[in-house]
């Protein structure tokens, strides 16, 4: 008797799973129209097997999905960044390690911070699924554009001295703790990279963070900003002779670190 009831229970309950739901429609993606420029800091490393996916995603966002609206910085800090036996270069540096620490918590690599925002839907600061980055960039681009950032640089080939001029133009009155970070990145570097279970000897590394010429957490800019009142800052640095200036970029970002780390606007120019 009980066995019959058991079978009946199974049939009734199993039949519930056949109920159909309305099909979910995936709308075509449309990049938001915005004057914002987003800083995407990609936590990566040459000994990280999934990092080529992160790099490809970041590159795709910067060049194809949101052209001109995403600035990528590839941070080769301490974790999974040890050079491979085939490596010619060591991309690690003190600034990258310090920045990697500043962008914690993150669980693994690849991970990225988008404008250094802690998203409510993420338990960590660094988002470790590259598939999510596009959605978060689109989300941030839809937020109000509050600052223009202008960049100019001069490079003396003889002394290798670099001068960077940063001009921040607030588009509304704001108070907080505003800091500016200026970074140097290099691309087009051919060197080994782990990819899954294989090592790619001639992998092209782009956006590699070489130096931060301000403080890593940003140099103080102001505590209150007035609409359309331009703030200019100048920074100088000596560019390491082993770096190829033809493939180098200057990246700047202004963040409000009062109660968070959120970047308001980023900018990128070629170094020379």
């Amino acid at each position: 008797m009980m066995i019959r009831q058991f079978i009946l229970f199974v049939l009734i309950v199993a039949s519930l799973s056949s109920c159909n739901e309305k099909t979910v429609i995936i709308p075509p993606f449309e990049a938001p129209v915005s004057d914002r420029v987003i800083l995407l800091e990609e936590l990566t490393g040459v000994s990280c097997q999934n990092c080529p996916k992160g790099a490809a995603t970041a590159q795709g966002l910067a060049t194809s999905v949101f052209p001109g609206q995403v600035v990528v910085v590839a941070v080769h800090g301490g974790f999974l960044s040890d050079p491979l036996s085939q490596s010619q270069f060591d991309f690690r540096n003190d600034d990258a390690e310090e920045l990697e620490d500043y962008l914690k918590p993150w669980l693994g690599k690849p991970a990225a911070t988008i404008n250094r925002i802690q998203f409510d839907t993420e338990s960590n600061f660094g988002i470790d699924d590259p598939d999510k980055w596009q959605g978060y960039v689109a989300d941030v681009l839809e937020r109000p554009h509050v600052m223009e950032l202008q960049l100019a640089s001069e490079f003396n080939e003889n002394t290798r001295e670099l001068t960077v001029n940063v001009g921040a133009i607030p588009l509304e009155d704001m108070t907080g703790n505003f800091r500016v970070t200026v970074m140097l990145t290099e691309g087009g570097i051919i060197d080994a990279q782990l990819d899954g279970a294989v090592i790619i000897d001639d992998y092209e590394h782009n956006h590699v963070l070489r130096d931060i010429i301000t403080e890593v957490e940003g140099t103080s800019l102001a505590t209150s900003l007035t609409k359309n009142e331009v703030l200019n800052r100048t920074y100088t640095s000596i560019v390491d002779p082993s770096w190829d200036v033809d493939h180098m970029y200057v990246v700047a970002a202004v963040a409000n670190v009062d109660g968070g780390k959120e970047v308001l606007q980023a900018a990128e120019i070629h170094l020379n």
Binding site: A14, E21, I26, P28, F29, V65
Partner: peptide, 24 residues
């Protein structure tokens, strides 16, 4: 969030998500 992710895929990689999953 799932839609945001799948939206970023090229059409050949896109799949249609479902709200309900059943395990027996």
């Amino acid at each position: 969030q799932v839609i945001n992710i799948i939206q970023g895929y090229l059409p050949e990689d896109q799949v249609t998500p479902v709200y309900n999953v059943y395990l027996m």
